[in-house]
Computed example of a mutant assay.
Amino acid sequence: MQTDIEKQVTYPIHTDFRRRVVCILGLPFDVVTLDQAVEKVATAAEKKSRCFLSTPNLNFAVASMEGGAFRDSVIRSDLSVADGMPLVWIARLLGLPIRERVAGSTLFEILRDGSARKTNAGLLSVYFFGGPDGVAERAAEKLNASSSWLRCAGSYSPGFESVENMSSADVIDRINSSGADFVVVALGAKKGQAWIERNLSRLRAPVISHLGAVVNFVAGTVSRAPVWVRQLGCEWLWRIKEEPALWRRYWNDGLMLLRLAVTRVLPCAVATRMKGRDLDAMARARVSVRMHERRSRIVASGAWGEGNLSALRDACERITATPCNVHVDFARVTQIDSACIGLLLLLYGHQTKIGRDFEMHNVRPSVMRTMRLHCADYLVARPDRVQGFPQEAVVN
């Protein structure tokens, strides 16, 4: 007899290349307001469509500098929002269209309140997974005792187990049998993202996100900063007041922010303002898809940015319609911006989802500098690792 865990969960692997995303510190961020993010999550839950929500803050961005699975988990998300005022400040400095913080805790509060929901659907059910011993149970009790658009379908605190031990058939069966629409994970950022990625295809809940502090806030074991403190960008001070052990993390993140501001963010802002947009090159931009037996290739030319990405989005959709290894040839690309890099991140993320290669090569020095300033130069393959296509001459 099949258990719930042995039954295949039928959420297809899909990447929405029409998402409007920008790159900040090497990560993709959706250009959405708080209300838009709430609506996306609520709609996904109600229509039973997969939404892996990531809420990267400064700590996420700093940890992602190491690369690897944690960074890639954010890139592979279906929705990635700027949960941190430093990221919003960086976006403003770079002239990016992210205007407000979309905090995961606030998103949950609005879903709970129901005031911003545009649909007439009934209650959504949530499952709390993780948190300190007994806190998830307390959060469940308080949520179900309140007048809310959310009800808690179950909770479980696995303790300080490994990701592998927390991914047993019994654990996943327990979550699936609850019938929850939304799994809220609270295991610490790295472990939480790793657990989600390991079990995403096995979980039936359409919406999944690591929202570490939410369980504590709902349970009342930690109080959240008042709105005026959040608006000033000082919620981190309040968190230290509530949880003094966090001071070291914020100190280290602050030092890294200063370093990134000097070496990447400020030089990027200056370069962006000095260069401006090459409107003629954007008008002449072209892209083609060349299908090959072993590898398929996107070949682009001209300047690419926020205003002309439609053709490049079409190329991404076409080349990923059939699973294949993908090469991106930028030999004749003269300029890109954060939105173009964001789209490339989505393509890279899609390829890692399906276990196929992504290689970007023949990148001009000026374009490479832009990618480096956006902390996304890891997308570019080293010349000695590119195989299958001849190197085209790069014009400096």
Rank of each mutant, 00 (worst) to 15 (best):
I98A: 07
A44R: 10
M282S: 11
A91F: 03
S201K: 15
Y378H: 14
F108H: 00
Q231N: 13
V222L: 07
A376I: 06
A245F: 09
S167Q: 05
S168A: 07
D384M: 10
P97D: 01
I90T: 11
M291I: 14
N57S: 01
R332A: 15
K353V: 02
V31H: 10
V9T: 11
S223P: 00
G355R: 10
L27I: 01
Y250R: 14
C324A: 15
G254S: 08
L343R: 09
A285R: 09
L345V: 03
R224C: 00
V171M: 10
D16T: 02
D384P: 01
S125R: 15
L260I: 12
S223V: 01
S147N: 14
Q391V: 03
P390Y: 08
C324P: 04
R18M: 11
M166W: 00
V333Y: 03
D337I: 08
L187Q: 02
L107C: 00
I298L: 13
A139L: 09
Y11G: 04
D133E: 15
D314M: 09
K191I: 03
V229A: 08
A45E: 06
R294H: 15
L150K: 03
A180I: 10
N396H: 11
R99K: 15
R151I: 12
S366G: 03
C316A: 15
L309H: 08
R369I: 00
S338W: 11
M1N: 00
P323M: 04
I172H: 07
P365C: 03
R364I: 00
Y11L: 05
E66W: 02
E392W: 05
M360G: 11
S366F: 04
L266D: 07
G220M: 05
R382L: 06
G67A: 02
F389V: 14
R318H: 02
N252P: 00
D329Q: 15
A311I: 11
E242V: 01
L343I: 01
P97R: 12
R369H: 08
W251I: 10
